[in-house]
Structure formats: structure tokens, C-alpha cells
Amino acid sequence: MAQQIELRISSDPRWLRMVRVIMQEIARQAGFPDGERGEITLAVDEALANVIKHAYRGDPNGTVLLSCEAEEGRLEIELRDRGLAFDPGRLVEKAPDELRVGGRGLFLMRATMDEVHFERNGDTNLVRLRKSVKAPTRE
């Protein structure tokens, strides 16, 4: 049966570390091996950082709802915010092997997750990340 976790977080970068610790544990509970746990944590961190930077323009007083649905070998994570409409098409997503300073966050999300989906519903931005375990492990 799927397990559900919800977190309501201020759009303040100080909480990124806490979210990473929680995501490591959720991914562990869902049966992901160490390397894939790191990738999931990176993708969620990048998604939350995008919300802080782009949707709330650095304002730490916004709210982000992070919800996870976990079952053995599968994880779905959604982030919702009511900041500025997020247009992923505006972000640079070309191959990042050049000496460009920024624009690697979305690339890393797509490189580490099976599915990365953005949508805008009314005044809410939604980012959905999905990943299934590649090599199940027992701990």
C-alpha cells in the first residue's frame, strides 16, 4: 500500500537541508539504493530551489507544499506553490558541457528522475517528479 507524506515549508533556503534529509529517508523506505536516493534528493532540492528562486523570487515568506507518495520501488513527489507562473520553457536546458554559469537545475532534474512534469492550475504551480527503482536492494 502506498505511504503518503506531506510537508508545508516556507520558501526559505534554510529548509533545503532538512528536506534533503527527509527525502533520503523517504527514498530509503521506498527501497531505493544509495546512489538513486542521492539522485532523488538532488532532484527535489533542485525543484524546491527553483520555486524559491523563480516562483517566489527569493521571498522567504511564500509557502511550498511538498507531497510524496511512496510504495516499494516507486516514488512520486509533487511540489505546489502559489508564486509567479513558472515557465520551464524559459529555462535553459541545452547540453550543459559549456562554461555557462547557471541553468543546470532543470537539466539535473531530468537527468536523475524518470519523469519531470510542470503545470499551472489557476494560481498554483505544480512540479511532479517520478522515479522507479532500477535495481531493487534489500537492507
Binding site: 534533503r20 538532488l42 532540492d45 533542485e46 530551489a49 562554461l99 555557462r100 554559469v101 547557471g102 541553468g103 543546470r104 537545475g105 537539466f107 539535473l108
Partner: peptide, 16 residues
């Protein structure tokens, strides 16, 4: 033990 894209951007700026 952890670096994100903003950290990578800082390293790239240093290299530039």
C-alpha cells in the same frame, strides 16, 4: 558530500 546546481554555478564562475 552534497553540491547542487547553484554550487556548480559558483565553481564555473571561479573557473571563468
Amino acid at each position: 558530500h552534497y553540491i547542487d546546481s547553484s554550487g556548480v554555478a559558483s565553481l564555473v564562475e571561479g573557473l571563468q
